[in-house]
């Protein structure tokens, strides 16, 4: 189902560094690491309450922000989740929650390895 893709695309980080603002990348990563657990939590509660709209929005936001920081695989799982909800396949979307957890953990580690994020 998922093609072999990088967990973290360094080009995204280069683009943020290119803006030229000191410590911008670390600030963005810190913000990302603070916001993402809330979004994952929102995914779970949306599945629990069977709220498709909330599920789609949370998946979308996590997708965008992850991609913005080079989280290609996490972004792809979120995108798949989002598109299943849009197609009305809520149950199938819910099956992706574990994959989201898994990919998030990997991405978090990758960020730590590149030295811009801390491991929880």
């Amino acid at each position: 189902m998922l093609k072999p893709q990088p967990i973290l695309d360094p080009a995204a980080h280069d683009a943020i560094r290119a803006i030229g603002q000191a410590a911008l990348l670390s600030r963005v990563v810190a913000l990302y690491l603070g916001e993402s657990p809330k979004l994952i939590e929102a995914l779970r509660s949306a599945v629990a309450t069977n709220d498709g709209e909330a599920l789609q929005r949370a998946a979308h936001t996590l997708k965008s922000s992850s991609r913005g920081l080079g989280g290609i695989r996490l972004g792809a799982v979120c995108a798949e989740c989002e598109s299943r909800v849009r197609a009305g396949r809520l149950a199938e979307a819910a099956q992706l929650l574990d994959a989201v957890d898994q990919e998030y953990a990997l991405f978090e580690q990758a960020l730590a390895i590149t030295g811009v994020g801390a491991v929880a």
Partner: peptide
């Protein structure tokens, strides 16, 4: 944008 990371990145770029 409801995504604070997106706001942060775009805002920095525009300010620059």
């Amino acid at each position: 944008d409801d995504d604070p990371t997106a706001r942060l990145i775009a805002g920095a770029a525009l300010e620059s």
